Every structure is written in C-alpha cells, then in structure tokens.
Simulated scan of single mutants.
Amino acid sequence: MTDETMTGETTGADDVDAPMTNDQPAAASRTVAVDATDAVDADVQIGAADATDAVDEMGDTNAHAQTIAASEMNAEDVDAQPNVANASVRTDADADGDATDGVDATEATDTPHVEPLTTTYERLRHSTDAAELHEFARRPLPDRGEQAAFSRATALLEAVAGNPHTPEEDRVFLASTMPFPNVLVKLSEDPSAVVRQAVAANIDDKNWLVGRLTKDDTPAVRDEALRNKRTSWKMRLEGAQDPEMDVDTLDFLSRLGAELEPDANVVLSSMVRRAVALNPNASQEILERLSADSSDEVVHAARRRLGQ
C-alpha cells in the first residue's frame, strides 16, 4: 500500500468522523434543553409543594386561632357566671340595705328629740321650779366613757349650782361632792355661808379657789379653807398672821408640821407656827405648847409672848 492510499484512507476516515464531531454541539444543546425543562418542572413542582405547604400551614394557623378563640370564649363564659352570681348577691345586699335603711329611718323617727345644750342651760339657770332643779342636782352622772353625755351633764350642773332657787341642801351636796371646777366656782360665790364652807372643805378644790376662800368674810369659811390640804403654805402663813383670825383656826395652824401633817416642809411649817406664836389672838395654851416647839425660832417667839 502506497503512502497516498494510506493518506487517502486516513483522510476518508477523518471525513467520516468529522460529521460526528459536528453533531456534538447539537446533542449538547438538546441535553441542556432537557435539563432546563426538568429544572423548570422541578421548580414548578417545588413551588407547588411550597404553596401547598403554605396553604396547609395557613389552615393549621387558622385552625389554631379558631381553637384559641373558642377557648377564650369559653373562658369568658365561665368568668361571666360568677359575675352573674355576684350580681345576684349584690342585688340581695342592696335589698337588705334598703330594708335596713327603712329600719334606721323608723328608729330615727322613734328617737326622742334632745333639747340643745344652750337652751337647756339657760332654762335651768333661770328656772324657779325647785323640783326640777332638785332632780338635776341629784341625777347620777353618765359614765366618763360617754364623753358627750358626761360633758353635757356637768355643764348643766353648773347652771343648777348657780341658780339660787336650787334647794340649799342640794347646793351643799354639790359643793361637797363635785370635783368639777366650773361647778365649785359657782358655789364658792353662793350667798349661803354653809354652801361656801362646803366648797372650802372640798378636797378637789384648786389651790387658787380654796386660797380665795381663806379671805372669806365668814370665819367658818376661812377656817375650813385653811384646814384644806389644798391650801398653799402662803395662804396658811397669811392666815396665821391675820389679827382677826379665830382661836380655833390658830390652834389648827399651830400644829402643822408637828402633830398634823408631820411630813410637811420643815421650814414652811415652822414659819406658820412662829406666826401663830406672834399673833395677838393666840391663847395661853397655844403659847405654852409652842414654847416647847422643836424649832428654836418658834420657841423664842412663844417665850417672848409669855414674857419669859
């Protein structure tokens, strides 16, 4: 075989193979087209599947929302039932309240009218009805815990105490037993010396009130006031120095800090006894007793009066 033959055969073979080589791009194109179609179909299927899943999810969501809404509605229904019961209870309570209001109104209607304090006070202050005044003077006082009633009663006692038409025995009773300054002040100005004397002896007197009674015009009132433990030492000293003081009162004052009130202030009580020793109305018996007093000043004053 010659070289040309070999070359021709080779060339022919190349020609035969050439068309096959030229067809490869077309086949590749067809393959790509098929792949693209498959991809599109796959995407469509995936999209359809996603859409179906989305619809299913929406359905599930709506169903869940409906379930929640139904639960809330049921809960509201459950809550509404106690409210209905409460409304019934309130209605019953309101009915009871209305009934109670009716009872209160009836009780208020049945409550007796109470006269204003100022009206009652003025009426008693100017009353000439001895029986009414006696009844008020002897009426038991309310308990102190009932403050309004207690204050009213003590205020009315002041009006009764200051009324001269109140029987004297009732005024003496009030002067002897009442601890209230407003009542005792009224009675300390009473025209009856017996009433004033009862005030002077009252151990609930304020010291300024009993001190004022030590200057009373009636000796019995002064004497009683000086004997009252509420009397200040100043008032007692002035009483011991009074040249018009009676012997009985001087005798009482001469024993203060010794036989009477032994725990009294030593200096003040000895000053009172010394003043008694110097008083011109002191009796011989008083002077002799004071001449043996425990205080040197009292002894010296008494002995000088005795001329010793």
Rank of each mutant, 00 (worst) to 15 (best):
T21D: 05
M20K: 09
P219S: 04
M1H: 04
A65M: 13
M271N: 08
T231E: 02
D94G: 15
V34Y: 15
L256V: 14
V16Y: 08
R212Q: 09
D246T: 07
G102E: 13
Q241M: 07
L124A: 01
A27V: 13
V247D: 11
A282E: 00
F252D: 02
D23W: 12
L253A: 03
A159P: 04
L209E: 03
T31R: 11
N22S: 13
D3N: 10
V40M: 14
P243H: 05
A149C: 01
D15V: 15
P243M: 09
T7M: 09
A264S: 14
S294Q: 11
G47F: 12
D92L: 14
L290H: 03
G59K: 10
D17M: 15
G145S: 14
L268F: 09
T7E: 15
P262I: 02
P140A: 03
R171S: 03
D17I: 15
L260N: 04
A148G: 06
P140W: 01
E76W: 13
D204P: 00
V195G: 03
D3L: 11
L290C: 05
A161Q: 01
M245D: 05
A85C: 02
R30N: 08
A130F: 01
P142H: 02
A65W: 09
N74P: 03
P19Q: 06
T21E: 12
Q81N: 09
D216T: 02
V267F: 09
L237S: 06
D129S: 00
V84K: 12
K186R: 15
M73F: 11
G307A: 06
Q45L: 12
D204T: 09
G59Q: 11
H134M: 03
A27Y: 12
V114Y: 05
D216L: 03
P164W: 00
M20H: 13
D101R: 06
P181N: 12
A69L: 12
D251Q: 08
A63P: 00
A13Q: 13
E189G: 10
L226R: 08
A292M: 11
R255H: 08
T2Y: 02
E115T: 09
N62I: 15
P243L: 06
A277T: 02
R222T: 00
A282I: 00
L237F: 10
K186M: 08
V114W: 04
R90K: 12
L133A: 02
D15H: 10
S294D: 13
H64W: 09
E189N: 11
A201N: 06
P280I: 00
V172H: 04
D96A: 12
D79C: 06
D92Y: 07
M178G: 04
Q197T: 11
A99R: 14
D38Y: 05
D293H: 06
D41L: 14
D17A: 14
T10Q: 09
T5Q: 14
E146G: 03
N74Y: 08
A33T: 13
S295Y: 04
S269A: 10
Q45D: 15
E297I: 10
A65D: 07
E57P: 00
S71E: 08
Q241K: 14
H64P: 01
A48T: 12
L187A: 02
S295C: 05
N62V: 15
A130K: 03
